[in-house]
Design a protein around this nucleic acid. Structure first.
Length: 936
DNA sequence: GCAAGGTC
């Protein structure tokens, strides 16, 4: 049997189709693993790497004394399968195979993935022949040839890839752990470090610093407008920017009639058609359409999986010869792009354009099938598809041609110039509207022509700081510097955002991002420089060429990292302190209005609030919605009234929830509660705020003496105010309870949120659960509940209230739970029930029950039932045992007061049936038995 | 809990 292993499923599927020819291919799918069988051959795809490197056991605990971050440098490393199903399937076939062909992508990483597969195959079959197929395009010819002429695995090349893996893991993990531990960061806010992410972050930080230290300089630009043959034209001074004001002034003063044409230069300019799309160009193009790098790749992946475009992760900018371009243009017949496709077919350039990079693993990105708007679905994906289609058209279209015109003039002695351009051959621009071509059409000029000066202008401008990086610009820079790969660059950006190192669009570093970069630059600048990647690539080339061993490169790298750790460990305290000090700034929103200490965003699990750093001496705090609504972060905007930074909640996939100034919102939310105080006015609230009382709970908790002084009021006034505050606080607490009750018992629906329902209740005068328990059903239904819902809500409310009452009457919680489970939480019903029934139903002893019934009866003012002794109950129940009465029936009888054989005999069937709901036949049977068994 | 690289 011949087993062929591809890097991904989609390639496996195509290989199988090509090789099978006329044979039928059987597809068997099991979760992530799919196999394609024909004749004696099985083709299956991996999912990229199916194993992962990790440190040996014992190194997983970050805070282990024995294995500090530094020890990772020489820690053991193991490979674990990450795709267990795929590995199992591969090994199952490998056991029976007599030939295995590795057909992974034709690049370094593909060779490594191939070697991983090889090792897994060898683990179960030491004898099988393993070879390697290399192909540059997934076409029938290439594939057939590559399998027929299969070669050996290039173990040196794979080792080069593995070296990269080890170095990345060891450097990344050890430095990440070191920084995170030094700065006392929790597991949800680690400070990550890596060969690619750290230099990328450093670029963003560097750019921000350039912007900060940028000093704008003034400069002046001169223009004139003049008329020729009734048409107005604008010319600019040939000097361009004047950086000296007096020079600009002199030139401006010298700009005067006569304005004479000195020279007319006509020319031709070719405007080259764009090159085929690689991943970077795709992200740049998508960026112009308004997509982030990550969403561009997401949508491209979607288009690829649905067969609309070719593989979206590629560095190739030259179409392979095997690609039939004409056929791909004809494919658009009858669709949205038919006209444009026909236009391109009729005007095709001799050979398609080609970019600088040509690789062997995948073709450039091009459309592989015709899609309609409806098929593709969402608008943004369609736009991306259209862009890919049009780019494909453009690469097959002729260059555009411009006719250019340059007119040199003098205004008295000052030289001016006008430039114009006219698109004479639109070429690719006819089908590709993404880069604008501005035409400037000028009137006819001849040397010696005189123009009439109509106006002149000296404009003062300022030099601008360099722009922050957009995502696509950053990805371009990363590619230029060799950072990351086509598949990972956009992920690196997402990672930096996720770690809260950068934010915004265009991107700028956060305080944390900047602090980490600066610490690393000081102590481990190897990892923040793009050169680390360059050096690594050179070493990898040496390993691949066989001129250096993997071990030698690793040893060298470990020595370097070790000396970095010498420095880091010596300065651990300082580094940690510096990071903590600086990141704390990010949590600070200003000064506490009460005591002036820094006011900070604080977090504890899911709850978050703004509190004074002077706690516990100062207890000022304002509440924030829980973190499920988003993480609270400081904004740059500052409240003009309170001088505090605004705060917003950020949640993935949701728009930011702007809280604004925390104190303003605190005052606003508390105003309503303050207004519940008798006689309280807006002015009164302002007065309270001005003496730093912002919440009703603060007013309730203050000492009367303090309040007298602060508000300059009398003792009785202060006492009353505090008492009122306590009452309101109690009311509010009950209201909160009601809200909680509603949210756990009423399912939210459109237009019927929990707050809406509780507001409706409050307007009906239902302000707490007790109120709800006694409310009219019609009132409850008017809040938007159905009749059935109102019924359950009322019953539930009554239950809650009853339970609270029983507790208040002194029933211990554990026993109460038993009563509730049996449905006897209503005090009245509890007292009225027969203790024998209660005992059987709840499992509590009759003695306890009688005691409780007496307690409750006394407090609700009813007669308690006659008490029943434990002895009487026990012997009674024992006398019933031989009758083999069903347990439910026994309980029902006990509730009816029948708990002994004698009582059963002495009560009429008619009465019992009414009281217990047991059928007369059944009761007669029990009674007959009773007559036989007892009382003889 | 860590990297970067595949792929989904």
């Amino acid at each position: 049997m011949h087993l062929i292993i591809a890097e991904k499923n989609i390639v496996a599927e195509r290989i199988a189709a090509f090789l099978a020819g006329k044979q039928k291919v059987h597809t068997k799918r099991d979760g992530a693993a799919t196999e394609y069988t024909f004749g004696d051959t099985v083709v299956m795809g991996l999912r990229g790497h199916v194993v992962e490197l990790d440190f040996t056991k014992g190194y997983s605990n970050w805070r282990s004394e024995e294995h500090p971050p530094r020890s990772l440098i020489n820690a053991g490393i193991e490979k674990h399968p990450t795709e267990k199903k795929i590995v199992a399937l591969m090994q199952k076939h490998a056991r029976k195979a007599d030939r295995v062909t590795i057909a992974t992508d034709y690049d370094t990483e593909g060779e490594l993935i191939g070697m991983e597969a090889y090792e897994l195959v060898r683990a179960v079959n030491q004898k099988v022949t393993v070879d390697r197929a290399r192909f540059s395009a997934i076409t029938k010819d290439e594939i057939t040839k590559a399998i027929a002429e299969a070669q050996e695995i290039d173990f040196n090349l794979a080792a080069a890839g593995e070296t990269r893996q080890v170095i990345d893991l060891v450097w990344g993990a050890s430095l990440t752990r070191f920084l995170s531990i030094a700065a006392h960061r929790g597991s949800d806010s680690i400070l990550s470090v890596g060969r690619v992410q750290s230099p990328t972050l450093a670029m963003i930080v560097d750019r921000e610093k350039e912007i900060e230290k940028f000093v704008p300089e003034k400069y002046w630009m001169l223009t004139l407008t003049a008329k020729i043959a009734g048409e107005e034209v604008t010319a600019r001074h040939v000097h361009g920017r004047f950086t000296v004001k007096t020079e600009a002034d002199t030139a401006f003063a010298g700009t005067r009639d006569p304005v004479t044409v000195k020279e007319v230069i006509t020319g031709k300019k070719t405007d080259k058609a764009p090159t085929p799309l690689d991943t970077t160009a795709l992200i740049v193009g998508a960026g112009r359409l308004g997509l982030s790098a990550a969403s561009a790749m997401n949508k491209a992946e979607d288009l690829y999986m649905r067969g609309f475009i070719s593989y979206p992760r590629t560095d190739n900018t030259a179409y392979p010869k095997s690609l039939n371009l004409r056929q791909h243009l004809k494919m658009f017949a009858g669709g949205e792009f038919e006209r444009d496709a026909n236009h391109v077919l009729a005007n095709m350039r001799a050979a398609p354009t080609r970019g600088k990079k040509e690789t062997t693993d995948h073709p450039p990105i091009y459309p592989t099938s015709k899609g309609t708007r409806a098929e593709i679905g969402d608008d943004v994906t369609w736009k991306l598809y259209e862009f890919i289609v049009r780019r494909f058209f453009a690469t097959l279209s002729p260059d555009a041609e411009w006719k250019t015109l340059k007119v040199n003039l003098t205004a008295d002695t000052e030289p001016y110039t006008i430039t114009g351009g006219r698109l004479v051959v639109p070429g690719w621009r006819a089908v590709y509207p993404y880069s604008k071509a501005e035409e400037a059409i000028l009137p006819e000029f001849a040397v010696g022509d005189r123009l009439t000066l109509t106006d002149k202008n000296c404009e003062e401008k300022e030099t601008q700081p360099p722009a922050r990086y957009s995502q696509s610009r950053l990805i371009q820079r990363m590619e230029e510097l060799g950072l990351g790969t086509k598949s990972t660059r956009h992920e690196v950006i997402s990672k930096l955002i996720g770690r809260k190192y950068i934010e915004g669009n265009p991107m700028k570093p956060t305080i944390v991002g900047r602090a980490v970069t600066e610490s690393l630059e000081k102590f481990a600048d190897t990892i923040t420089a793009p050169t680390m990647t360059k050096t690594l690539e050179e070493s990898m080339e040496n390993i691949a060429a066989g001129t250096k061993t993997m071990d030698a490169v690793l040893t060298e790298s470990k020595t370097m990292l070790s000396s970095i750790f010498d420095d880091l460990e010596e300065n651990k305290e300082a580094i940690g302190q510096d990071l903590m000090d600086r990141t704390r700034e990010e949590q600070t929103v200003g000064q506490c209005p009460v005591c002036g200490a820094p006011l900070r965003i604080r977090r504890a699990g899911n709850s978050q609030f703004i509190g004074c750093s002077g706690y516990p001496k100062c207890t000022f705090n304002t509440s924030l919605p829980p973190a499920t609504w988003g993480n609270a972060v400081r904004m740059n905007e500052i409240c003009p009234i309170h001088q505090l930074n605004h705060v917003q909640l950020l949640r993935k996939g949701a728009p930011a929830w702007k809280i604004g100034c925390p104190l303003c919102s605190h005052i606003k939310t508390n105003a309503e509660a303050f207004k519940m105080l008798p006689g309280m006015t807006d002015a009164g609230i302002e007065k309270l705020n001005s003496v730093h009382i912002y919440a009703i709970s603060e007013l309730a908790g203050i000492s009367p003496d303090d309040l007298m002084i602060r508000l300059n009021i009398s003792r009785p006034e202060a006492d009353k105010m505090i008492r009122d505050a306590e009452t309101v606080l109690g009311l509010l607490r009950k209201r909160t309870e009601l809200k909680k009750f509603i949210s756990s018992h009423v399912a939210p629906r459109r237009g019927r949120g929990h707050s809406k329902v509780s507001a409706a209740f409050i307007s009906k005068g239902i302000v707490d659960i007790a109120g709800l328990a006694g409310a009219k059903k019609s009132d409850v239904m008017e809040a938007g509940l159905s009749e059935a819902e109102a019924d359950t809500l009322l019953t539930e409310a009554a239950r809650v209230i009853h339970i609270a009452e029983m507790k208040q009457y002194g029933i211990p919680t554990i026993t109460l739970k038993k009563y509730v489970a049996a449905g006897y939480e209503d005090p009245a019903a509890f007292v009225a029930a027969h203790p024998a029934g209660l005992s059987l139903a709840t499992g509590a002893s009759v003695t306890t029950i009688c005691k409780h019934q007496k307690m409750v009866a006394e407090q609700i003012g009813t007669e308690p039932p006659k008490s029943l002794s434990k002895a009487a109950f026990d012997t009674g129940i024992a006398s019933l045992t031989p009758l083999e009465i069903e347990p439910e029936h026994l309980t029902a009888l006990a509730f009816a007061g029948v708990y002994s054989c004698a009582l059963l005999k002495g009560t009429a069937v008619q009465t019992l049936a009414r009281q217990t709901g047991i059928t007369k036949e059944q009761l007669t049977e029990y009674k007959n038995k009773a007559k036989k068994v007892c009382g003889k």
